[in-house]
Design a protein around this nucleic acid. Sequence first.
DNA 1: CAGTGGTCTAGACCACTGG
DNA 2: CAGTGGTCTAGACCACTGC
Lengths: 261, 261
Amino acid sequence: MNTTPASAETPVSLSDALAATPAFSPLYQQIKGLILQGLQSGEWKPGEVIPSEMELAARYRVSQGTVRKAIDELAGEHLLVRRQGKGTFVATHSEQHVQYRFLKLQPDSGDLTSEGPAQREIIDCKRQRASSEVARALALRTGDAVLQVRRVLSFSGQPTILEDLWLPGGPFKGLTADHLTKYHGPMYALFETEFGVRMVRAEEKIRAVLPDAAQCQWLQVTPGTPLLSVERVAYTYNDTPMELRRGLYRTDTHHYHNHLS
Amino acid sequence: MNTTPASAETPVSLSDALAATPAFSPLYQQIKGLILQGLQSGEWKPGEVIPSEMELAARYRVSQGTVRKAIDELAGEHLLVRRQGKGTFVATHSEQHVQYRFLKLQPDSGDLTSEGPAQREIIDCKRQRASSEVARALALRTGDAVLQVRRVLSFSGQPTILEDLWLPGGPFKGLTADHLTKYHGPMYALFETEFGVRMVRAEEKIRAVLPDAAQCQWLQVTPGTPLLSVERVAYTYNDTPMELRRGLYRTDTHHYHNHLS
DNA sequence: CAGTGGTCTAGACCACTGG
DNA sequence: CAGTGGTCTAGACCACTGC
């Protein structure tokens, strides 16, 4: 817990000092790191309260304000959720008002919740060997075990999204079509409760494409209907990629909504 | 500057108290509002420094910490930019590293800056009367004066984006094709310097579409090539809509990149 | 070196929650 | 009512910038 890591105790050569940034890291960043450890290690699980600011301040031997700033940043990254009067909680995908946090598709009028719950139909779930492409996205080696899932999401009875998912075989050992079919709720919530994998952020690449015959079938659109192709890589703590997802979105009744600021 | 607005001075009926939220607003939020006023009124212009935290604290008769928290939020919304040792500056679209802040299109390999500067070709710029649709988006009345601009953006010589813009006639009085053609740089930078209009945030609706014959010409694609349709409404301070923009993006060599967190 | 933003502390008080 | 997060203050010191 050193405020100035590059102090006398750790001699640094002149060239080092010039090459690498001094890497000064404020106390609250170090506290943030410690809290992050607690989250990764599973000491505090999604949905649970973490200790109060005063307790954490005592544990880490810093002032409440320093803990506060660390928690502020983690809350800003949606890893923690503060609730005045109640405490600070580990964020989870299992809550109503954050169900569709990573799904930016909206009906042209109203919002997703107004369309009622999504119907999820699992088409397929099988073990496979990672193609070079999948391996690269998931930071695996080509040929490593992966799970592939295909499903259709419908809103108000209309098939709207066709998705293919690839998951690393290790962390998701034991996942079957049965799991997915029986579980009603967001997939990321299931990942949390059943496999201890919490998705924290994601990157999406979006393109306009034309569907092939099979895809037309699943989405019940005519060939030649342009669709949105959404390729997502989702990450857990530590920037570890844990899911590759390729979605085809209908955009005749819905649109992808994005807020820029 | 009242910490508890619903105090004895302003009697509130029981029904009011139950209906409307108490609307307690912390001091730093009020300071934030005052700074925002300074930005809107043009007291501090894009690119300029605002007074130091100590000065503002003295002016508003609060502690430095309170000003700090206000500025923190404004910096988080990208209205201000803090530079240690130098001061706090009004954000601007005229800087290299934030040039494409609202443009999420990326080449499939590398980034936009690696492709060199964008070539901007103004196709058209004319005064018009707002259609009901345009009027609604810009919070005008149908028939009000608007400017319509059409242009093509090319990267590495390849036409990639075809855009139509609608701007309210009032704030942009005097804008001509000449302005746009002669100005080399981001359009939002020109809006700042020439018309005092700073774009602060935007909303985008994205769909997959098929281009018509004219659009194919401009983008040099064959009919039947699916394109990304990006409809953007951009806002100044105060959530005032100031631009409606409809873009068609080629996504065979580029993709729309989005970060979810 | 003075002036800026950035960090850290300690303590007081407020707003919200639940028993 | 006690316990939580939220606000506000005052003061000390650190890191960075430019003269």
